[in-house]
Simulated scan of single mutants.
Amino acid sequence: MKISRIICVIPARYESTRFPGKPLALICGKPMIQRVWERAKKVKLIDEVIIATDDKRIFDKAVSFGAKAVMTSPECKSGTDRIAQAVRNIKCSIVINLQGDEPLISPDIISNTIKGILKDTQAVVSTPVCLVDETENLSDTNSAKVVFDKNHYALYFSRSIIPNSTRYEKSKAGLYYKHIGLYVYKSDFLKKFVKLKESSLENTEKLEQLRILENGYKIKVVIVKKENSVPVDRPEDIKAVEKIIKMKGERL
């Protein structure tokens, strides 16, 4: 595909049922949203990084550490709606939705996921996944699992264990993959996606990407190495992230 600009948008909202004010939560003295922004800025393929929010506190903090920030409507139902609104007047060919709760995401994961969609003529979105090992809790519903075909196109995402099981089984090692919160959209499709009605599977699983599959579009799965990345879903996750930073250092 012909590439113009690649834009990365980090959606950030203040209100959260489980963790209000999460983007501004301090991790080793630095706001989480700043840590995510700094990871994105390290990716050479990205032309511009934007923080999209509906909260003046987040907007002001983003500007204070040098980020480009835009205010979006509080009526946006999802992060995808927010990023689509943020780039609606920007000419680009690729739009990255980088979740604001992944403060340790590797720049290499972002780069490889971008490359995945650039090389593919059938998929409209690419997203990274990594193998789950026996030390992880497969039944954790905060973590989406995924199965995909031999060409690495997603078949299904679920909060349940897929392939079906009640626990990690060594005989199925190599089949369990978990999803990492990053989406790389072809910009033309992003405009279509936000106009599609919410789907039944999406509402059942509470996973927005299922709307893409239910409407017959392809999602390219990019397998990446398991990293130290810990998504922050609850306040107690902050300690786990800080522990990794203290062990590995700020340059991990």
Rank of each mutant, 00 (worst) to 15 (best):
E15V: 10
A240W: 06
R251P: 00
N112V: 01
D108K: 04
K186E: 02
V95Q: 06
V43T: 01
K30V: 15
I161M: 14
N89V: 03
G100M: 01
S111C: 05
L210F: 08
E236Y: 09
E202S: 12
S165Q: 09
K61T: 13
V221C: 10
H179C: 02
S78M: 12
Q85I: 11
K170N: 02
K170P: 00
V194M: 03
P235E: 14
K206Y: 10
V241A: 06
K218H: 12
Y153A: 04
S78N: 15
F193Y: 14
E208H: 11
P74S: 06
R88C: 13
D188V: 04
I90W: 06
D237C: 00
I58R: 15
I238W: 04
M32E: 05
N215M: 00
K197D: 15
I245T: 07
T113K: 09
Q209T: 05
G66A: 08
L210P: 00
K115W: 10
I83R: 05
R159K: 03
K243N: 08
I33V: 14
I46Q: 15
G66F: 02
K192Q: 01
A67P: 11
L155N: 13
R159W: 00
D237Y: 05
W37K: 03
V146C: 10
L45W: 03
I83S: 02
N164D: 08
K150C: 12
L118V: 09
Y185N: 05
E198V: 07
I33R: 07
Y176T: 11
V43A: 01
L104V: 10
R251W: 03
V9H: 01
P11A: 13
Q99S: 03
T204C: 07
V87W: 02
I33A: 03
S158F: 02
V241N: 04
R211D: 13
V125C: 12
E214D: 12
I27E: 14
D188Q: 07
D108Q: 11
K77R: 15
F148M: 08
I83E: 15
V129N: 04
R35I: 01
V222G: 04
L138E: 02
K41T: 04
I27F: 09
D133F: 03
G79T: 00
I51S: 13
C8H: 07
K220R: 14
A173K: 15
T17Y: 10
I50E: 05
G21I: 06
F157E: 06
V49W: 13
L175M: 14
I94Y: 11
A144F: 15
G174P: 09
K197H: 11
K195G: 00
A86D: 15
D47E: 14
F65Y: 10
R159N: 03
D101E: 11
F157Q: 04
N164R: 05
K172P: 10
I244F: 02
I3V: 12
K172F: 14
K220H: 06
V36C: 10
A154S: 09
S160Y: 09
I219A: 05
N164P: 01
T141S: 12
T141L: 07
N215R: 05
G100Q: 02
K178V: 02
K22G: 09
S139H: 08
P235I: 09
V194S: 03
T121S: 15
P31E: 09
L118C: 11
N89H: 13
P31G: 03
R159G: 00
I117M: 05
I50D: 05
V95C: 05
R13Q: 01
T166S: 08
K44H: 13
N164W: 03
